[in-house]
Design a protein around this nucleic acid. Sequence first.
DNA 1: CTGAAAGCGCTTACAG
DNA 2: CTGAAAGCGCTTACAG
Lengths: 323, 323
Amino acid sequence: MKITIDEIARVSGVSKGTVSRVINGKTTVAAHTREKVLDVMNRLGFVPDPAARELSMRSKYTIGISIGQGDNRISPYFALIWRALARETQELGIQFIELSDDLSSYIRLPNAVLLFSAQHTHKRLDFLKSQQIPAVVIGHEPGHAFVVPDDHTGGKLAAEHLLKLGHRRFAFLGTHIPSQAADDRRNGFCETLLKAGHPLSPELNLEGHFNTLDAYRAIRKAWEQGHRFTALFAASDEMAMGAIGALQDLGVQVPEQVSVLGFDGFPFPGLRLTTIAQDIPRIAHEAVQLALSGIEGEDPQGVYVPVQLQMGSTTAPPPDSPV
Amino acid sequence: MKITIDEIARVSGVSKGTVSRVINGKTTVAAHTREKVLDVMNRLGFVPDPAARELSMRSKYTIGISIGQGDNRISPYFALIWRALARETQELGIQFIELSDDLSSYIRLPNAVLLFSAQHTHKRLDFLKSQQIPAVVIGHEPGHAFVVPDDHTGGKLAAEHLLKLGHRRFAFLGTHIPSQAADDRRNGFCETLLKAGHPLSPELNLEGHFNTLDAYRAIRKAWEQGHRFTALFAASDEMAMGAIGALQDLGVQVPEQVSVLGFDGFPFPGLRLTTIAQDIPRIAHEAVQLALSGIEGEDPQGVYVPVQLQMGSTTAPPPDSPV
DNA sequence: CTGAAAGCGCTTACAG
DNA sequence: CTGAAAGCGCTTACAG
């Protein structure tokens, strides 16, 4: 019914230890042996059983993810990170568990815990420190182990892209509520604009609160009040979507009249948004590595994961541009 | 480092077979033995290793989930169902795999496959049938095995709730694009209103396309055109959120002037929406059961999972009500 | 009602 | 470079 490593070993005429070695890409396998085994695996459509791998690779470690009250667990970001973490831990044979209750209510905590950076994260971090359990924050959190997309560079890339297209009048969509992500993305953006001699004017530093609806409202309101710009950088794709909706309703063409650039690079159905893409699998990978380092007693480190410009169809030269 | 079943057995002074029996709630364990073991487990904070359970319970089956092009994989619904399915299959020791490519490109398919009901699902269903692989559709799909929330009853519950509060002028937010979910929810709603003698007027059968932004626009436009209602039923929570935003912007109080009722019952941060809640874990459970039945050669069945009214703070009697 | 033992499908020292 | 064997943590007939 199900193809196992024994079957592959039998058909290939080698031991299952050898098959395991090629599965895991160990270098100590003769090239022709490797090829033969790989060939059989392909032919039979073999997929190693993750549960068995997990059990035998069992690193003895358990990593938990703590979910706070305020965590927006139905946001795309949360969902995508979650799946990436589940995949990553599975590959390493690490047990991944969800801690949805108050941390102090657990009799036994995992060997390390991950948490999303949010308003009330510090209490949990303090508690974990008191229990000597290494913590890794997903988001910028100096003084602790953390992993975060390189937001500042993302803002810079956004500015560079728009400047290069010829834009001179910009708007930004973020939030004034304390938010490292919004702040860093805005700073990277504004600093680059400033250096280029085209600073963001304060009344176009808008608030979309990381949701589509508030973004729609902010853009619509600003435009109706007479503020004009030819390029908008939104600190999330969802805000970019809201902005595009508002511009549509205002009769403004995207990207012909106004360019819109997002941040995240999530697979939104329909529209191909130009955006600064995060590398979610990499973030998950780094988070797990940091957890492992923490378990092994190493000092907490911060990791910035690179972002990159992902071209879509929502940016173009400004309307008055000779380009 | 890690508590295992052996440790529990040792401390409790029984064999690990017995510990396993209490873990799995087998009835063939003496009451005092059970208590003793349970006590030790609690005291030591024991959690059975899922990978080990999976491996030894191994039902020999693999269930795949096929992800279509059009599937909005970052929608909350998708993400929540996904996690529920992963949990469900894990508990049953079933391997759960993701089929993100075209089904025909796999050398070896799982023993059953789940898919979301969508526009272009039929090709995949036909292919699976040709391969004799049982399929289970998440959504209404007569003629195949399917599991779907009881949308029609949900619409009815919504109408009953609003009628009971005293409302007489209603609006509905769905989509005119073919959508079983929207249609059934609307039908249940409208039929109930009609029977009560307060039919939905056609110009208040609005389109929000299951997203916040279009819902906002639809409500705002309808209201600005002079259409009035005191109660709105949105076929998804996301549309309800958009509607509430629009009403806010129009200076209309929710729920004092207009009640808003959603559908889904997802944990949105912030607002406590009155809504018709789906039972996601149950949907996942039924989907897996149907897959198992299919594998065992039983005839495809359709399952309707009950929904229920979940009270929040967005519905109230209408403004002119003496209630 | 309970224990001893085999087995789930893989990985990894250990020898050679 | 490769094989034989032990082991990961659990479940479940099989005896008793």
